[in-house]
């Protein structure tokens, strides 16, 4: 799969841009959190496209954003149904 570039993104309509980014980000997220990959990717797609492009080029920044998203998700779930041990 060829790398996604800023010029490729700019040539696509806004809605398609998020789709293109999601298709690249999802498999990377899936390797870290397979069960939550869809939701995490959905959250990440709310970030600016330029930032998402940077994350695709920098595994470290992607990883930290994914961990952030997981923490937010867990807090969200904890509010809806607080039932945990520890």
């Amino acid at each position: 799969q060829e790398p996604l570039t800023a010029s490729m993104l700019a040539a696509a309509p806004p809605q398609e841009q998020k789709q293109m980014l999601g298709e690249r980000i999802y498999p990377l997220v899936h390797r870290m959190h397979s069960a939550l990959a869809g939701k995490i990717t959905g959250m990440l797609l709310e970030i600016d496209n330029s930032e998402l492009l940077h994350m695709l080029e920098s595994p470290e920044s992607l990883h930290s954003k994914v961990e952030e998203a997981v923490a937010v998700l867990q807090a969200h779930h904890a509010k809806e149904g607080s039932h945990k041990s520890g």
């Binding site: 999601g22 939701k39 797609l45």
Partner: peptide, 26 residues
């Protein structure tokens, strides 16, 4: 009954057109 139809976060599925937050129908 509380509002259990909260769909946040929107879930991304490969191959499915992404609608983002717009997929929340009234």
């Amino acid at each position: 009954s509380n509002g259990s139809s909260i769909t946040w976060p929107p879930e991304f599925h490969p191959g499915v057109p992404w609608k983002g937050l717009q997929n929340i129908d009234p």
